[in-house]
Computed example of a mutant assay.
Amino acid sequence: MTLPAGVERRSVDGQTGLATRGEPVYGEPTDGEWRLWNPHRSKLGATIEQGIETGLDGEERALYLGAASGTTVSHVADFAGPTYAVEFAPRPMRDLVGVAEGRPNLFPLLKDAREPETYAHVVEPVDVVVQDVATRGQADVALTNRLFLEDDGRLIAAFKARSEDVTADPDAVFDRLLTELESGYEILATERLEPYHDDHLAVVATPER
């Protein structure tokens, strides 16, 4: 698997893992300008650690859905180009704004990822949509935000089974989500994210036109 430009595997404070260059955000170990990317706190970090081919090269224009307080999207902004970070809740948005102060290419948006029409006037066409939205209807979120993706762009999503149905078997939930997703995407790869995140499925897909 090829790592994006700007992402390296490094040893920091006796820990070896993925690292990006940027200001620390969540107490992660650092070595100069490099900071470790903790896959236990990042679905995208876990996706890359699992060896899934994401198609990320570095310098992509990115739309991040479900940015929360900025743990993962800060790493994305370290190696990507313009990065639009959508978060619905005001409390984590305050933290996200602080993260963006040191990253001029990171643009926080206090919006609902289920309503892309509310930020369509702000977000340019992007090369990648990264989705980590813990809500019912995760496939719908991916489908409605497809409008931002370039024809050869990538969706990199982490689907959480318990957000869809806390009682159903996760495999059954994932099968249903993938079937729904196939109405607008060609699925390129899937992989469970254990041991980093229980009952999560990483999905890499490209839009069908």
Results as ranks from 00 to 15, higher is better:
residue 1 M to L: 13
residue 1 M to I: 11
residue 3 L to K: 09
residue 4 P to Y: 02
residue 4 P to C: 11
residue 5 A to L: 13
residue 6 G to D: 03
residue 7 V to S: 08
residue 7 V to F: 01
residue 9 R to L: 11
residue 9 R to M: 11
residue 11 S to D: 13
residue 12 V to Y: 04
residue 12 V to M: 04
residue 13 D to Y: 02
residue 16 T to C: 04
residue 18 L to A: 05
residue 19 A to P: 10
residue 19 A to L: 05
residue 21 R to S: 14
residue 22 G to A: 02
residue 24 P to N: 05
residue 24 P to E: 05
residue 26 Y to S: 15
residue 28 E to N: 05
residue 28 E to V: 09
residue 29 P to S: 07
residue 31 D to Y: 01
residue 33 E to C: 00
residue 33 E to Y: 01
residue 34 W to A: 09
residue 35 R to M: 06
residue 36 L to V: 05
residue 36 L to Y: 00
residue 38 N to M: 01
residue 40 H to K: 14
residue 40 H to A: 04
residue 40 H to W: 12
residue 41 R to K: 14
residue 42 S to P: 06
residue 43 K to Q: 08
residue 44 L to W: 03
residue 44 L to N: 06
residue 44 L to T: 08
residue 46 A to W: 01
residue 46 A to V: 06
residue 46 A to M: 05
residue 47 T to G: 03
residue 48 I to M: 15
residue 51 G to L: 11
residue 51 G to Y: 02
residue 52 I to Q: 02
residue 56 L to S: 08
residue 60 E to N: 11
residue 61 R to H: 12
residue 62 A to N: 00
residue 64 Y to E: 11
residue 64 Y to T: 05
residue 66 G to S: 07
residue 67 A to I: 09
residue 69 S to H: 14
residue 69 S to W: 14
residue 71 T to S: 13
residue 72 T to N: 02
residue 72 T to F: 01
residue 74 S to W: 00
residue 74 S to I: 02
residue 75 H to L: 07
residue 75 H to F: 04
residue 78 D to C: 05
residue 79 F to W: 14
residue 83 T to R: 06
residue 84 Y to I: 07
residue 86 V to G: 09
residue 87 E to A: 11
residue 90 P to Y: 04
residue 92 P to C: 12
residue 92 P to W: 07
residue 96 L to P: 11
residue 97 V to P: 00
residue 97 V to H: 11
residue 99 V to D: 04
residue 99 V to K: 05
residue 103 R to F: 08
residue 104 P to W: 03
residue 108 P to I: 12
residue 108 P to S: 13
residue 112 D to C: 10
residue 115 E to H: 15
residue 118 T to F: 02
residue 119 Y to I: 09
residue 120 A to K: 13
residue 120 A to T: 12
residue 122 V to E: 13
residue 123 V to G: 09
residue 125 P to Y: 03
residue 128 V to W: 03
residue 130 V to E: 08
residue 133 V to K: 08
residue 133 V to I: 11
residue 133 V to L: 12
residue 135 T to V: 15
residue 136 R to N: 14
residue 137 G to Y: 03
residue 137 G to F: 05
residue 138 Q to V: 09
residue 138 Q to R: 12
residue 138 Q to G: 03
residue 141 V to W: 06
residue 144 T to E: 15
residue 144 T to R: 15
residue 145 N to H: 04
residue 146 R to M: 02
residue 148 F to R: 05
residue 148 F to D: 09
residue 152 D to N: 14
residue 153 G to K: 06
residue 154 R to A: 13
residue 155 L to N: 09
residue 156 I to P: 02
residue 157 A to C: 10
residue 158 A to V: 07
residue 158 A to D: 07
residue 162 R to T: 14
residue 164 E to S: 10
residue 165 D to I: 10
residue 166 V to N: 08
residue 166 V to A: 15
residue 167 T to M: 10
residue 169 D to T: 13
residue 169 D to G: 01
residue 169 D to S: 03
residue 170 P to A: 05
residue 171 D to S: 13
residue 172 A to D: 15
residue 174 F to H: 09
residue 178 L to A: 08
residue 179 T to D: 15
residue 180 E to T: 13
residue 180 E to F: 01
residue 181 L to A: 12
residue 182 E to Q: 15
residue 182 E to K: 13
residue 183 S to Q: 14
residue 184 G to F: 07
residue 189 A to Q: 11
residue 190 T to M: 06
residue 192 R to K: 07
residue 193 L to Q: 08
residue 194 E to H: 05
residue 201 L to K: 08
residue 202 A to C: 04
residue 205 A to E: 10
residue 206 T to E: 15
residue 206 T to V: 15
residue 208 E to S: 15
residue 208 E to F: 06
residue 209 R to C: 00
